[in-house]
Structure formats: C-alpha cells, structure tokens
C-alpha cells in the first residue's frame, strides 16, 4: 500500500512537473496563398482533410530516418478537421511508459488517437508542414474518416503492422483515410537492408522488410504552409538535408552505434557529434541575404560541405567539396 502511494506520489509529481514545462513559441514560417488557398487561420489556408507532417525533437527521429531504404523527412503524420471554424488535428501516437515493466521494448509503448488544436499539436515539435490531400481524395471524407476512428477509440499499433488494421500507427491511419476518401492507395516500401537496421527491427518486433514513413505524404506541389521552432523554412530544410546526409552515409557496412547509443532500458540517444552536425546545418544560411528556398540545390551542396568538414568526405575518395563544385539536385 505504501509502495502504491509512493508510486502515485511520484506520478503526481511527474504530472505537476509536466504542467510547468514551457514550449518554444510556434511561428508560421510560410504560407501558400492563391485563388485556391485563401487564408482562413493565422494566414494559413486551412481546410478539412489536409495533412500535417511533423518532425519530432526526440532522439527516435534519428532511428526513424534510417529505417526506410530511401530518405524521407518528417517523423509523424496527422489529419486536419475544421470544426466550427477551428482546425483540429487527429492522429494516433504512442509513448513509452514511465517505468518499462515489460522485457520486450515495444510492449512498453501504448497509445491511442488524439484530437488537438493545430497550434497545441505542433508546439512540442521542431517543425510542421501542411499539405493538401492527394488528387482524388475528398477532404471532407478524409476528415470524417479520422473523426470516426477517434470515436471508435482506435489504439496505437506499437508493432507497426500495416497489414492488420485493428490497431493503427500514424502513417497507416493517414493512408487508410486517403484511400477511403477516394485518393490513391499508399503501400509500404522497402526498409533499409543494412544488417544493423535488420537486427534492430527484429529486436523491436516490427515487420521486416517494409516501412511506411510519414514523409511519403509530403509533396511540394501540395504544400500549404509551415510552422515550427526554426526561424525559416530554409533552416528547417537544411536540418532535413543534414538528416538526408546521415542517411546517405549509412551504407551497408555502417551500424547504428556510429550515430546512436542505447541504455539499459532501450532508450536511444544521439551521439553528440551527430546532433551537433544537424544543429549546425540549421544555421548554414543564417547570414545569407538571399537564402535558398527548400529544394534549391545550394542546400544540399552546403550540407555536404559541412559533413565533409565534420566527418570527412563521402565517399572517402570523393574530391573535397567547394562552393564551386557541381551538385545534383535532390
């Protein structure tokens, strides 16, 4: 009984501590306004059925980036539903319990669907972009699908099984919502064949060989707006390009420990030189009077120069990068 009271007290303390956490302000960093995108909310052209892609500040974001064979930005996906003029965000997500009581790591992850105001939803994240739904998908139907799943109380699928829809993970929910609204189906894609990733996926118990990254739903042609803690979209996409570079360097002979560490409870952390690299990338164009827009090859070139400076050139026999070196557009 005393033990139970102690644990409860510790939980209460933790809750109280959470209540005092102040998050950095969320800023609108970009908006697309045209005939089809009239501002409706803080300058953003928000409609039901739009997708919100976010980038988490957690170390796990460095794990997620390595799992798909191909690089994708963003760690999480959700859907907007405008209700009485207010944009609400619906997503399904999980979190590790405070005390990991179960031996299998993912058995300690629980979650459910959430409904949160747009800015409240974005606040704990580094960055978010909003996209129109894919062609053919009806936004209202898309939003109705996630509202229905929320009403059903769908649980989070901590084993990321795309083929079993009794529980859902974030991109599975979004893929199902798009398809139910008349949009194109989204199939999982190959996961990273790197032996270290294969071993890690086996340990986690997630399906081998496939992944459905949140970034699959990002399409510059459907971009609506951006929010977050970065000062500009250029800074955000320089950070993403740094993660792209980490992915590019993660060849078959590399292992997770070159970027990450793990403690006795399975908690993953990023090695300091890796987080320093991505942080520096976010500042590459701070003093540039004419900073590149996302997708501009100058971002890739600058990040590769930074990586060569931090870790040596890649491939190892590549010529030293210089500002004049030709670059390939992403």
């Amino acid at each position: 009984m005393k033990l139970a009271r102690t644990v409860l007290a510790a939980c209460a303390l933790a809750v109280a501590a959470c209540g005092t956490v102040s998050l950095p302000p969320v800023r609108v960093l970009g908006v697309k306004n045209d005939e089809a995108h009239k501002p409706t909310y803080n300058g953003l052209a928000i409609k039901s059925g739009q997708l919100v892609l976010t980038e988490s500040p957690d170390a796990t974001s460095y794990v997620f980036v390595l799992i798909p064979k191909k690089f994708y930005a963003f760690t999480h996906a959700a859907v907007i539903s405008v209700e009485d003029g207010e944009p609400w965000v619906y997503d399904v997500t999980g979190e590790v319990k405070t005390f990991p009581f179960k031996k299998r790591l993912m058995d300690n992850v629980t979650g459910k669907m959430y409904r949160r105001r747009l800015f409240e939803y974005v606040a704990p994240n580094l960055y978010a972009e909003i996209y129109d739904p894919p062609a053919g998908a009806d936004g209202e139907k898309l939003a109705a699908f996630v509202r229905q799943k929320y009403a059903e109380g769908v649980e989070f699928d901590s084993y990321f099984d795309f083929h079993d829809h009794t529980k859902l993970f974030c991109s599975e929910l979004v893929a199902m919502a798009i398809e139910s609204a008349g949009g194109p189906p989204t199939a999982p894609e190959p996961s990273n064949p790197n032996p270290s990733i294969v071993e890690g996926m086996k340990w986690l118990g997630v399906p081998p060989g496939e992944a459905l990254p949140a970034g699959r739903f990002a399409d510059p042609a459907r971009y609506v707006g951006a929010l977050g803690q970065f000062p500009t979209r250029t800074a955000a996409w320089s950070y993403f390009e740094a993660k792209h570079e980490l992915h590019r360097r993660f060849t078959m002979d590399q292992r997770m420990g070159f970027l990450l560490s793990v403690d006795g409870n399975g908690r993953v952390d990023v090695r300091p030189e890796i987080s320093a690299f991505t942080a520096r990338a976010g500042h590459l164009f701070d003093a540039d009077p004419n900073p590149p827009e996302p997708g501009d090859p100058r971002i890739e070139a600058a990040v590769r120069r930074l990586a060569a400076d931090a870790f040596g050139p890649f491939p190892a026999d590549a010529p030293a990068a210089s500002p004049a070196a030709p670059v390939t557009a992403p």
């Binding site: 950095p24 988490s56 500040p57 999480h76 704990p124 580094l126 803690q229 942080a279």
Partner: peptide, 13 residues
C-alpha cells in the same frame, strides 16, 4: 544548439 528545448516531447509514430 538545436532549436528545440530538450524537454519538448513531440509525438513520433
């Protein structure tokens, strides 16, 4: 320094 506070907890899934 990264732009986010270390205690900010974004959802990932």
């Amino acid at each position: 320094e990264p732009p986010a506070a270390a205690d900010a907890g974004g959802g990932v899934s």
